[in-house]
């Protein structure tokens, strides 16, 4: 027997979640599909390929206050920001859930990043399987799959007049409504995804570090931050103080290893000043350093960077070029 919720009951459940928590789901605004807080169930887009930005923003905001500096009567006090509301992230695909699991590795490694941990602890992930992978998707080559429930709390798979309900975690189990019933029903098979030759890529990367390939690739790169900002697993950030009138806050914002001053220290020295070295850093971090440190590739194969890159830097092409280069260079 499989657990099941009807479409009508799903809507009722989502309405209840909107009342009780913050519900973040894919919605369309200005022609863009983005994860945003919703107040009406009808605004939720259920049938989609990929959102423009990944839902990482729910845990690692584009900009977030870490603490506020309060000064009173000559005394200074630091007031940490805290996450005080529960959130449901609804409608994310398995690749984006895997992206969060990958970000957990650096953020929750001891000493854990407090705010990120709080966002994670107070957010429940209700995912939808990916029914129509795009041509630029390659999740199966990165260890995921369009129907992979692993990193979600609940997976809802559309079938008949409703959804098959799979509670993956205790947190998911807790949030389910009583309208979930048992029914004899078969899950549709996952769609196929075009593979990329990623096997052994991390080892091959070691051999091609000095190849002129990277500076040639960087010829075309304009060094914007698009790839990093649309990516579910890019987690570089900047920290500075924000002061406005008497208000002082320490804030963290997204940054990208592609930006010109990323490694430039005060005084002007920059160990990674060339375009080639910067672009190489992006691919080495994902395909070599991150796996070395955390045992997993820093990419989920969602294809967002491929679609959004203004000059067609295509990580699938990079992976297959690296394999070819590595074979040529030998071990």
């Amino acid at each position: 027997m499989t657990r099941f919720i009807s479409k009508k009951d799903l809507i009722t459940w989502l309405e209840k979640l909107i009342q009780e928590r913050i519900l973040i789901a894919p919605t369309t605004k200005n022609g863009l599909l983005l994860f945003q807080p919703v107040s009406e169930v009808e605004d939720i887009v259920l049938d989609f390929q990929n959102t423009e930005l990944s839902p990482k923003e729910c845990f690692f905001s584009a900009t977030e206050t870490l603490f506020a500096v309060k000064r009173e009567d000559g005394r200074t006090e630091l007031v940490p920001a805290t996450v005080d509301r529960d959130t449901v992230l609804f409608g994310l695909h398995p690749c984006d859930a895997m992206g969060m699991a990958i970000n957990d590795k650096p953020f929750l490694a001891e000493p854990a990043d407090t705010l990120y941990g709080q966002h994670r602890a107070r957010t429940t992930l209700i995912g939808l399987p990916c029914s129509k992978p795009t041509t630029e998707c390659f999740c199966t080559s990165m260890g995921g799959g369009p129907h992979d429930p692993t990193h979600l709390d609940v997976l809802l798979t559309e079938a008949e007049d409703g959804y098959i309900v799979q509670a993956v975690t205790g947190k998911g189990e807790e949030i389910l409504p009583s309208s979930v019933v048992e029914r004899e029903i078969v899950s549709p098979p996952p769609p196929s995804v075009e593979p990329v030759p990623a096997a052994g890529i991390s080892e091959v990367m070691e051999r091609v570090f000095e190849a002129p390939y990277w500076s040639r690739l960087a010829d075309r790169c304009i060094h914007c931050n698009i790839c990093a900002y649309v990516c579910p697993t890019c987690y570089c950030f900047d920290v500075r103080d924000y002061a406005n009138g008497g208000r002082i806050e320490r804030v963290r914002s997204w940054e990208s290893c592609q930006s010109p001053g990323f490694t430039r220290i005060a005084g002007g020295y920059d160990p990674r000043s060339s375009k080639g070295a910067r672009l190489r850093q992006r691919f080495y971090h994902k395909l070599r350093y991150f796996p070395q440190e955390f045992g997993a590739l820093g990419c989920v194969g969602c294809g967002r960077c491929i679609r959004a890159c203004p000059v067609n830097i295509d990580i699938r092409e990079v992976i297959s070029d690296v394999q070819k280069l590595g074979a040529k260079i030998g071990t």
């Binding site: 650096p106 987690y235 430039r264």
Partner: peptide, 19 residues
């Protein structure tokens, strides 16, 4: 060695030299 750093915790992914 000196480097631009934002966290000191190995999280901001900025001060790496290779791995």
């Amino acid at each position: 060695l000196e480097s631009k750093m934002k966290c000191g915790l190995g999280k901001c992914a900025r001060c790496n030299i290779g791995d």
